[in-house]
Simulated assay, not measured.
Amino acid sequence: MTNYERHTAVTDEERREFLKVIGVAGAVGASGVTLGELNSTVEPSNVEALSAVGAAVSEEMAGGVNPDLLATQQAELATALSAAPAAVESGAAFREPGSAFDDIAEAGWLTHDHLAETGFFETLSEEMPAFNPERLTTSTQAFLGSSAATAPLTDLDLGGTEGVDLVAPIINQAEKLSHFHWIASGDIPAEHQLADVLPPISQRAAGGVLLWLQNLDDHLYQDQVLLNEQILADGIWEVRGMTAGFYLMAEGAKAVSADSDRFTDAELGALFATSIALQEVAQRMLPVHMHWLDEAARDPGNVKIDSISI
């Protein structure tokens, strides 16, 4: 593996299953399908709930956040993400504790804090219904069927086939998202003591992404002896997924604040649902790929016996 930014962690079988669920199996080739093909092939349906979410968030947040600040931080996020794989490939990340992934997190914290201060996370969490497989299928179809909604992924070099692989785990892991990751704010029992201190769930998704990224440079340096090329490639793929989800969330917030007509209400609802799901899926998979390593996963050839002292 010599080019980490061209690696995805989606198998051909997972891709075929994904295309089947969204209703385009047979209409496109599974191995080389692109976002552009799906934009013109996927037929969104039952988008009324998505329209309601988009309209409600737009009404609540119109003029509420600073779109210029978000755009500036998005540019920094894209630059930092683009630079990170090279730091790993060059070996710089292993010679001393680096800041390749912390730079991505730093570019995101200002956005996170601004959206928290303006009430964006609270509004989004209140308006978005709980995830379930049917809703995730509907939102994913609406997202993929919209060239406007998928266009921001090209800023992160995630267009084409990689953009399809980015979104596929939302469907393939829909049951896990439903049971373990998203509980609508209104469904948290009022008597539950944590309900008053937990931040909105969309904020927890975004903050979790940034905390994982903030920790990753030290993990690479301290535990490099355990990490082979496949582990690194899979981990970087999840980093790209987390960052893409965060980036899309900021894109939606920017659009509603500027009162832009770039997205329809349904596209905006799909954009928000997809952005949160991407953040949740990728940060669940990052520790699976990079932290919870068994003997079969790690490469024993990485261990330098002559460097071990007893």
Rank of each mutant, 00 (worst) to 15 (best):
K20Y: 07
A184H: 11
E17V: 13
G119M: 00
W182S: 10
I183A: 11
D294P: 04
V88G: 05
V303H: 05
A190Q: 14
E117W: 02
K304V: 13
A297C: 03
D259K: 12
A27P: 05
L227A: 13
L136C: 04
I22W: 02
A49T: 13
L232A: 02
S178F: 07
A151L: 06
S275G: 06
P129D: 14
P129M: 00
L211H: 09
M61K: 01
E127M: 08
A277S: 10
A25I: 08
A80W: 04
E229D: 12
D306R: 14
A195Q: 15
E13Q: 09
W292E: 13
N172S: 08
S58N: 05
M1Y: 09
A205F: 05
L166A: 02
E96D: 11
T137I: 07
S202H: 03
E59F: 03
A83T: 10
A195W: 12
G26Q: 10
L19N: 09
G159K: 04
G36T: 15
R15E: 09
K20C: 11
P97C: 00
V42I: 08
F263A: 04
S40V: 15
I171N: 00
D265W: 01
Q279L: 07
N132V: 11
G241Q: 02
G119H: 00
T2Y: 13
N302W: 03
I201Q: 01
L248V: 04
S51I: 01
L35M: 03
